[in-house]
Design a protein around this nucleic acid. Structure first.
Length: 675
DNA sequence: TTAGGGTTAG
């Protein structure tokens, strides 16, 4: 009766769902109900099982002992043939044996790995029935199983009922919480273990606690654990080195991470992955690509994770050369059909300025899931190809793939970047029909779309009707639109909202200042500048990069540091002369400061993208496409000038700004002047 | 002699 009481205290999920067929009472009095659960499955697999090594071996023995079965189960478990482990378990029961302490951990592991929740619950019930409640080794397996099934509260109950907990019990429940998205609870358990138990953490426990600190982004506490690692003399433990490298890399301390990485003479794949992804995630894309190349040169075979990190890095660099290189690498590897890798490549090509190549990769994927479709829709959106994005969306629906919230973000931002107001409204209200509840990002997209198209009042009303508090992206979109449409009053209101959320971000002050400047309100411009100084807001310095022969060269505004600076200057002058000759009028409002007209003009043609463009023109043969990446949004003057320059110098110029792509050709831009 | 962890997340 004790075990039945225990079953009801645990309220096992299996019994919650199947209380009619397999109630605890039924289980208690039925000798081997497992055979009924797996019987159809067993029939299905029977042919395969007869061919297997396991069954051949068992067949040779007329009446196998439990130890023979256990040996077979361990061998199968080692080969990761988990379905067969469960089938042999059924045979054990059919032969009238009872599983022992050597059988059950393997069965639990198989249930966890498959995963087989119902089977696992039944096994747990049998564990209790057979009186293994106090067997730490077995109960640890139960904790892990429930954690992996997301049944963390059941796992915790098992942990609570365990009379003798060892370091594995503590680590299992701690990592269970961390893996289920509760890192704070995991850390709480670690603290309890340290304070209330005599257990000394081993290297796996420390890896688990470090992972939880990585998840919460607490570098200081992570450093304290590093101290513990040293205290316990575990600093040479390779697995801890991997997690510590990951901790420092993910928390932005890439140099410390690299020092740890360099300590290892022959790093295993997972350490390369930790370092490459650490670089890629922290904006050190060049280093990530370089390290990836080094790894390949050292004949370490990358896996899907390595490739995804390297592809992400290439996407950030924006270099089409690097993108093509990695695509070729993937095409020649055994991961060429990996859907995750291919989706990353679609995203990369879209971000590196070739929506055509992105589409080529997309068309070659035979089984497209929702993320593949969404990546391509997002790619069209980046280029302002709204109609193509919409058409692909309909193709996706026809292919019976259900859109998710990310698909809708891609679709709405495509409408936004193409100025398709009617479509944007329509798809926003269609979302719920597909069971997708609009999130803040969807609202921000629609506000941006409406406001930029000049529907400022509608956008403002829409914001007022939002079911959640509008964040900076929403007010920022309204502020930007007020700048475009010269709306001083509404712009002032939007700016106040934005300043309240991000008082440190100088970009917002510049927007308001530009609204005032356009209206000739120079006193207000001065007031904003004072406010900006008082609040210590700083503006990110603008820079542009251009890729020449696969090498990236970056320039700041007014940059004269390049060895070929004189030639670059001569080219910017020549461009300016050509622009003037063809009647180009500089857009003076693009200058924040209250300067004289001549100074304003000079300031405008010194913008970083103009310098990068000039460098591209002097370094490449006529007709070569120029590919420029900049960290800020394109300014109005640069945009108009680049359109004309593309015609004057007969070049295609592709500029990736902070938000999207601009493809300039023959005096026009693909964005249709809508950005 | 069978448990626990670490790289990613398109």
């Amino acid at each position: 009766m004790a075990s039945r009481a225990l079953l009801s205290r645990l309220s096992l999920p299996f019994f919650r769902f199947h209380s009619v067929c397999y109630s605890p009472a039924l289980f208690h009095f039925t000798p081997f109900p497992l055979r009924y659960i797996v019987y159809p499955f067993y029939r299905m697999q029977k042919t395969h099982l007869y061919c297997s090594l396991a069954h051949q071996q068992l067949d040779e023995i007329s009446q196998p002992e439990l130890s023979c079965f256990n040996n077979t189960i361990h061998r199968l478990s080692h080969r990761r043939s988990f379905s067969e482990v469960l089938l042999v378990y059924v045979i054990i029961l059919r032969n009238g044996h009872l599983p022992n302490g050597l059988t059950l951990p393997c069965i639990l592991k198989a249930c966890t790995a498959l995963p087989a929740l119902f089977f696992g619950c039944a096994v747990h019930a049998q564990i209790i029935r057979l009186g293994f409640e106090a067997a730490t080794f077995i109960q640890n397996g139960v904790i892990v199983m429930y954690s992996r099934f997301g049944e963390i509260s059941t796992a915790h109950k098992v942990f609570d009922l365990l009379s003798l907990r060892n370091v594995v019990s503590w680590t299992s429940i701690m990592s269970g919480y961390a893996q289920n998205g509760f890192p704070l609870e995991a850390l709480h358990i670690f603290r309890t273990m340290r304070l209330d138990s005599p257990i000394i953490p081993d290297f796996i426990a420390l890896v688990s606690v470090l992972k939880a600190y990585i998840d919460v982004g607490d570098l200081d506490q992570g450093r304290c654990v590093h101290g513990l690692v040293v205290k316990f003399g575990l600093e040479d433990e390779p697995d801890l080195l991997i997690t510590l490298t990951s901790l420092y890399a993910k928390c932005g301390q890439v140099n410390t991470a690299r020092n740890m990485f360099d300590q290892v003479f022959s790093p295993e794949l997972i350490l390369w992955n930790a370092m490459i992804s650490g670089y890629a995630k922290n904006g050190h894309a060049d280093e990530a690509v370089e390290l990836f190349k080094k790894m390949v040169a050292r004949k370490v075979r990358p896996d899907s994770i390595t490739l995804r990190s390297a592809i992400l890095a290439c996407a950030q660099v924006g270099s089409l050369e690097a993108a093509k290189w990695i695509w070729e690498f993937v095409s020649n590897s055994e991961l060429k059909d990996d859907v995750f890798v291919n989706t990353a490549i679609i995203d990369m090509y879209a971000k590196c300025g070739s929506v055509v190549l992105a589409r080529k990769v997309f068309d070659n994927i035979p089984q497209k899931d929702v993320v593949v479709w969404s990546a391509m829709i997002m790619g069209y959106g980046l280029y302002g190809q709204g109609k193509e994005a919409i058409s692909l969306f309909h193709e996706m629906i026809q292919s019976q793939v259900r859109p998710n919230d990310i698909t809708y973000i891609g679709l709405l931002s495509a409408c936004k970047n193409a100025g398709l107001v009617h479509d944007g409204r329509k798809y926003f209200y269609l979302m719920r029909n597909h069971g997708v509840e609009p999130r803040h990002q969807h609202y921000a997209c629609l506000v941006d779309l409406l406001a930029r198209a000049g529907h400022l009042e509608e956008a403002y009303e829409f914001i007022k009707g939002m079911p959640m508090a509008p964040e900076v992206t929403v007010w920022g979109a309204l502020l930007n639109a007020c700048r475009i449409h010269g709306q001083v009053e509404l712009g002032k209101y939007a700016a106040e909202r934005v300043f309240a959320i991000e008082p440190w971000n100088a970009g917002h002050y510049v927007q308001l200042s530009n609204i005032y400047a356009s209206a000739g309100l120079w006193k207000d411009v001065a007031r904003v500048r004072v406010l900006m100084r008082e609040r210590g807001a700083t503006k990110a310095m603008g820079f542009s990069s251009i890729e020449i022969n696969g090498k990236l060269q970056s320039f700041y505004a007014g940059d004269k540091s390049h060895p070929r600076s004189k030639e670059i200057l001569a080219m910017t002058d020549e461009l300016e002369r050509k622009l003037k000759k063809s009647g180009f009028l500089p857009h003076m409002d693009s200058v924040l400061h209250d300067l004289g007209p001549e100074e304003k003009e000079l300031s405008l043609c010194n913008h970083s993208e103009r310098i990068a463009m000039a460098y591209g023109l002097i370094c490449t043969p006529p007709g070569t496409t120029l590919r420029i990446t900049k960290n800020l949004r394109a300014c109005v003057n640069c945009h108009s000038a680049t359109k004309l320059i593309s015609k004057l110098v007969e070049r295609e110029i592709i500029v990736r700004d902070a938000n999207r792509f601009h493809h300039f050709k023959d005096g026009f831009c693909t964005c249709g002047d809508y950005w």
